[in-house]
Each structure stands twice: as structure tokens, then as C-alpha cells.
Amino acid sequence: MFKEITIIDDDKIQVFLFLKFMEKMDKAEIVSSFVNGKEAFDEMKERSENNASYPDIIFLDLNMPVWDGWLFYDEFKKLPNSDAITIYILTSSLSSVDNDKAIERGLNEKYLNKPLNFEQLRELLQNK
């Protein structure tokens, strides 16, 4: 059982789906969501300053308003102890530019294309 799994995505339906999947799987005590990278980063920064724990796993969308996924990723990585957190990119982007950015950051194995189906998600969390 994970303590907390987070999804950062501006798409309400995607967040709804994710929360439903997680509810059915019953794999995490808390499932939190943020609507863009900035909102998520502010929360993570505050936790870092208060010595509160980060989520165990973050599912990160790329194309979002305010702060996109890449900006969140790069800024979050600068926070202390963020290296221990697993981040999955969860995007509908098929752009090779995003793909290249993922490779640059060593995320090739953690780059997921939407739609993420129930079985995929379950398998992913089982192997963690």
C-alpha cells in the first residue's frame, strides 16, 4: 500500500478517471491531484520546508497551463530529497520533442502515453 499517489493534470476527465482507477485498485491511502505544475510545485515546496513527506509516486501530464510538466519536473528535482520520488510522465503528446526531453532526463522507461488503462496502471503499481 502506498501512502500517497499524485496526479498532476489540467484535464478534469483524466483526473476523474485516474481517481476512479485508484479507488478501484485500493493501492494508496491518499490520492491527490493538482491542476497544473505550479500548483503542485508550491505544495511540494511547502512540504519540503515543513519536513512533510512527498507523495510516493507522481503521474505528470506535460501540456498544462501556468507551469507545464517539464517546468514542474525540473524545478521539483531541485528540491531536497526529491530524487527518491518516482515520476511517470503521463501524456497524450506524441511529439518527438517531448520524447527527446524524456530521454535527456533518463525517463524513457517512465514515459506513458494516454490512454493509461486500468490493467497497465495496476501492473505498474504492482511492480513498484
Binding site: I13, K24, S93, P115, N117
Partner: peptide, 24 residues
């Protein structure tokens, strides 16, 4: 084209996701 393909894909992904929930 990137914007179009991304936006279209987001919607189809949601549609597929909702249908899979319905199936469950």
C-alpha cells in the same frame, strides 16, 4: 499539427478511459 494531435488524442484517451470504466 502538434496542438491538433495532442488535443484530439486527449479527448480520445478520455473516451477510451470512460468506456473502460463503464466496462468494469
Amino acid at each position: 499539427t502538434h496542438i491538433v494531435s495532442h488535443n484530439l488524442r486527449s479527448h480520445t484517451a478520455n473516451m477510451q478511459g470512460l468506456l473502460s470504466l463503464l466496462k468494469m
